[in-house]
Amino acid sequence: MPRSRASGRSASSSRPRPEMGAAPDDIAGAIAFLASPATKFITGQTLFVDGGKSLGGLGL
């Protein structure tokens, strides 16, 4: 697998996951996070559970 020059990680590790939709476990994890005390200062945000697909057009 090719490695990224900047980070030394494999290039595929920075790419979105190939699934077309989020798995139920992914959604459940997001819900558990949002229901936890760790989010007491998070307000008015949109949480995308899409494996990184929403970042595809940002050129990151």
Results as ranks from 00 to 15, higher is better:
1 M>K: 14
4 S>D: 15
4 S>G: 12
4 S>M: 13
4 S>T: 11
5 R>C: 04
5 R>Y: 01
5 R>K: 10
5 R>I: 12
6 A>L: 04
6 A>I: 02
7 S>N: 11
8 G>K: 07
8 G>N: 06
9 R>N: 12
9 R>E: 12
9 R>S: 12
10 S>Q: 14
11 A>T: 12
11 A>Y: 08
12 S>Q: 15
12 S>N: 14
12 S>E: 15
12 S>P: 09
13 S>N: 12
14 S>I: 13
14 S>A: 14
15 R>I: 05
15 R>W: 09
15 R>K: 15
18 P>I: 05
18 P>Y: 00
20 M>K: 15
20 M>E: 15
21 G>M: 09
21 G>V: 15
21 G>E: 11
21 G>C: 08
22 A>N: 09
22 A>H: 05
22 A>S: 13
22 A>F: 06
22 A>T: 04
23 A>I: 02
24 P>L: 12
25 D>I: 07
26 D>L: 00
27 I>L: 14
27 I>C: 11
28 A>I: 01
28 A>L: 12
28 A>Y: 06
29 G>H: 06
30 A>R: 00
31 I>E: 01
31 I>V: 12
32 A>V: 02
33 F>R: 04
34 L>E: 01
34 L>F: 02
34 L>M: 11
34 L>V: 05
34 L>Q: 02
35 A>T: 01
35 A>P: 03
35 A>K: 02
35 A>R: 02
36 S>Y: 03
36 S>M: 00
37 P>G: 07
37 P>S: 11
37 P>K: 08
38 A>G: 13
39 T>Q: 10
39 T>P: 05
40 K>M: 09
41 F>V: 14
42 I>N: 03
43 T>K: 09
44 G>W: 03
44 G>D: 07
44 G>E: 04
46 T>P: 01
46 T>R: 05
48 F>P: 00
48 F>I: 07
48 F>N: 08
49 V>K: 00
50 D>P: 03
51 G>K: 03
51 G>C: 06
51 G>P: 04
52 G>I: 14
53 K>C: 03
54 S>D: 04
54 S>P: 04
54 S>R: 09
55 L>H: 04
56 G>V: 02
58 L>M: 05
58 L>I: 06
58 L>P: 02
58 L>V: 07
59 G>V: 03
60 L>K: 06
60 L>M: 10
60 L>N: 08
60 L>T: 09
